[in-house]
Nucleic acid binder design. Sequence first.
DNA 1: GTTGGTTTTGGTATCGATTACATTATGGCA
DNA 2: TGCCATAATGTAATCGATACCAAAACCAAC
Lengths: 338, 338
Amino acid sequence: MDIQQVARRANVSTATVSRVLNKSPKVKASTLEHVKRVIAELDYIPNTSARNLRRGRSRILGLIVSDINNPFFPELIDNFEALARAHAIDVIFSHTNYEVDRLRQCIRRMVERNVDGIAVFTSEADQASFEFARARKLPLVLMNQDGPRSSFHNINVNHRTGAIEAVEHLYELGHRRIGFIAGPGQFQSTRDRRSAFVAAMAKCGLAVKKQWVVEGDLHLQGGYAAMLEILRSSPCPTAILSTNDVMAVGALQAARSVGLAVPGDLSIIGFDNLPVCTMVTPPLTSVDIPRRDIAGHAFRMLLEAFEQLHAEPLATPKVLTQLVVRGSTAPPAAGRRK
Amino acid sequence: MDIQQVARRANVSTATVSRVLNKSPKVKASTLEHVKRVIAELDYIPNTSARNLRRGRSRILGLIVSDINNPFFPELIDNFEALARAHAIDVIFSHTNYEVDRLRQCIRRMVERNVDGIAVFTSEADQASFEFARARKLPLVLMNQDGPRSSFHNINVNHRTGAIEAVEHLYELGHRRIGFIAGPGQFQSTRDRRSAFVAAMAKCGLAVKKQWVVEGDLHLQGGYAAMLEILRSSPCPTAILSTNDVMAVGALQAARSVGLAVPGDLSIIGFDNLPVCTMVTPPLTSVDIPRRDIAGHAFRMLLEAFEQLHAEPLATPKVLTQLVVRGSTAPPAAGRRK
DNA sequence: GTTGGTTTTGGTATCGATTACATTATGGCA
DNA sequence: TGCCATAATGTAATCGATACCAAAACCAAC
């Protein structure tokens, strides 16, 4: 079933059928109708490989994330894909499991597939893989990866605004001793959040104590362990900010395991604002990362890039994070000053 | 950058380069080496559109789920994609948002992309879309969609084994009054779970009371509302089985909101065994659906189908569900008989 | 009934890789 | 050395759709 059969059946040339398929304006209304009917009759679907080969474009975008099991990503993927669908673009999706080698493989495979652009939402980054894409003039959108890679399209997620709101919120509740559960240093995103915390503390005139900043593995266990370690210090912090929600939940469980009430004895704030925030008890106060906006920007940038509306790199969109207050924060036990 | 340039640079014909690319055994070792080096030098990547056009296959599989935001799916997707990667196959991914029309669109788009097969993990199903695929001899794997569609490959997930374990577990703890939070009737999966519950109750010789079976929308709110409604009955059940974990968490919150302790006053069991089970307090006892196995079967079936190892439909694999006991179940308050 | 201009349609080279078939190189042995 | 079988390589048709260019159809005006 190919375009020739349709052409034969409709008594026109393949060129005319092609014009109908591509909604070319210069087809007589009657032929248009007729050809359309034949196409429907035969249930004909054009061969995308042939089309792509000829056109040099694929109408496929690549989407790479670190870890699909991380509940941060589904909403982002969802939104990206919805936009793509609306533009009749397909999405090839892959994840790296936080490994740099896999990122390289992913990009390579997507290049083989002739994708029209790639959005890379990974915490780890690899200059070489990016160069590989650049050499092929393939549009690439990254997240918070400026600096040496600034020639790629970049989406700037400002973790500071949310971190500042979080620390100010705690400060206003009366907290002065605030700890932080950090993430592994090799990830850009966790580094960003750590420095956002430091900046926020500075802004409120609070000191960052080394023994109150402990690294976790981003999973439940890591948060649990980190919390226990922080609680071994003396004096203890009265509030904790966590690099992500999952570890915040771990921290919550750890606090409870040693008999501390949340938020009575300890306030906890997470990062990400995942659905799980409303499922735990107490519901978790968290810094929201606007995933829909991020997906939207990424898609729009790729679309514009490969439609060549802009030869120049687009302006870097800035996305602000924002505190969502729920039940895991309250005045510290000692003095309910506010 | 195409195969001709490589051929020219290596002083061989395109046929030879192609043979090298496809690991054909009849290339002299020295030429093989040489051509490989040139390919590496030029950073040449073959054009997949051309290759697919010629070969008539795409090495792309389609994967359709209802809702990527439903935490049931990520692990399944993850596993499917990992297997695909291992076989150098790409995955185009899409979701239907539970809408039948979108399912049809998804399948159509995937056919246009020349996918070699599609795995459909949706709760809703649409005969017409499936026929569309069948007419093109496109392998399709469905989940629990036998009966009239039995000519497609099907994976049979047995919800009964898990439901029976769940009800028996409650029975042994001493529960006799057991309620059920059902899901919307239009989904195959929720119907399956409901009838599994009924069967399990029968097996234990327990009656299913109408007022203890209430339908929820599969979301947190739905579970919350359904639980409140069930609690309005008198006498109340002492234990609840929920169609999914998310509603079970809603039920947990509802119980707590009216002053009931879980598991002290009310035992709760969910379905799915999502990560969130370990995050809530108390951790949720749940029926595990082996998502890895499902993904594995689906992938294997598609692979075998499109490699034509089997002209005949493959045997329908059966996947058993299993209870995972955690902290949300305990003997009923009245009599701790066990 | 021409002519000239505008629509509409058709013929065909082309995209880049694969592969059947043709051709040339290689090596073993008399 | 010469011949033949076999291994290695090359030539060119092919996959299905697109788009350039040319041809044909159409129409209006003289």
